[in-house]
Amino acid sequence: MQGKERTFTPEVEKVWNKDYQCEYYRGVIIDGEDNIVERCTRTHASYDAALDEAKKKMAYSPLYYRQAGADIKEKLEEYKKKKAIEEKKNAVVVFHTDEFGEWKYMYEPKDGGVLYRFRYKNQMSEASTFLSAKSGSSAVAPLIANEVYRKGESDKIFYESRIRSEYDIEKLPGHKDIWKITSIVNVTQNKNQDSKVTVRYLKFGNLTKEFKKREKKKTIVIKRKWAFYNDLMEYIQNYADIRW
């Protein structure tokens, strides 16, 4: 006779906190007979926070997820998707292309979400290379080859590797244009599938390091060819109705 299949469910138990002299909560996992099979390590002042931790333990544990009932699996899948979105929203993300001079974007989760648009100015400068040659005993006139190099390349690499917050944007070196996008007004798509996004923004540079007082409005183009196009558009659409 085949044994009964075990099923697991996330739950919460009350725990007495000796330091605060009140009840706290801890996430637990129970089986089909209401036995606690595992307790989470942390305790929480919030019931919901404790339940969230129990759900996370189940959703990311192959042991419990595999043996959960169909209805619980469906709820755990929804939970994983929800947590993935929350984690994405709570992470500092830098979107940048491999092309020098293209606009980059940074999303910072503080204050409900802040989006920055920035770029390094394409600092180009000419340099001369002198080549000399000899033919027998007579010297041939030096050959001069002009080449163009990017003065800002090292600044760009240094800058992009260290962006974590607005403070970093202000303090790191290099000639740059930076917008703080305050709201999304409208989003449409071009025939070539690039997206036109109308934004309100405040602009500042690395000379004054201060936001200009007057807010501006402009339509910018998010290019389909950018590798981060879908991710960036997801941020823009998710936060289009939120004041940044």
Results as ranks from 00 to 15, higher is better:
Ile72Tyr: 09
Lys73Glu: 05
Lys73Ile: 03
Glu74Lys: 11
Glu74Ala: 09
Lys75Trp: 06
Lys75Asn: 14
Leu76Ile: 03
Leu76Tyr: 00
Glu77Arg: 03
Glu77Pro: 01
Glu78Gln: 07
Lys81Val: 03
Lys81Glu: 00
Lys82Thr: 00
Lys82Gly: 06
Lys83Phe: 02
Ala84Asn: 08
Ala84Met: 10
Ala84Tyr: 10
Ile85Arg: 10
Ile85Thr: 03
Ile85Asp: 11
Ile85Trp: 05
Lys89Glu: 06
Lys89Met: 02
Asn90Asp: 05
Ala91Ile: 07
Ala91Trp: 01
Ala91Val: 14
Ala91His: 07
Ala91Phe: 06
Ala91Asn: 06
Val92Asn: 06
Val92Lys: 06
Val93Glu: 00
Val93Gln: 03
Val94His: 01
Phe95Thr: 00
Phe95Ile: 12
His96Gln: 11
His96Tyr: 07
Thr97Glu: 01
Phe100Glu: 04
Gly101Phe: 15
Gly101Glu: 09
Gly101Thr: 10
Glu102Ala: 02
Glu102Arg: 08
Glu102Pro: 05
Lys104His: 08
Tyr105Glu: 05
Met106Asn: 09
Met106Ser: 10
Glu108Ser: 15
Asp111Val: 15
Gly113His: 01
Gly113Asp: 12
Gly113Pro: 06
Val114Gly: 12
Leu115Gln: 02
Tyr116Ala: 11
Tyr116Trp: 01
Tyr116Lys: 02
Arg117Leu: 04
Arg119Glu: 06
Tyr120Glu: 11
Tyr120Leu: 09
Asn122Gly: 13
Asn122Ser: 12
Met124Tyr: 09
Ser125Glu: 04
Ser125Asn: 14
Ala127Trp: 02
Ala127Ile: 05
Thr129Pro: 08
Thr129Met: 15
Thr129Phe: 13
Phe130Ala: 08
Phe130Lys: 11
Phe130Trp: 08
Phe130Gly: 10
Ser132Arg: 09
Ala133Gln: 07
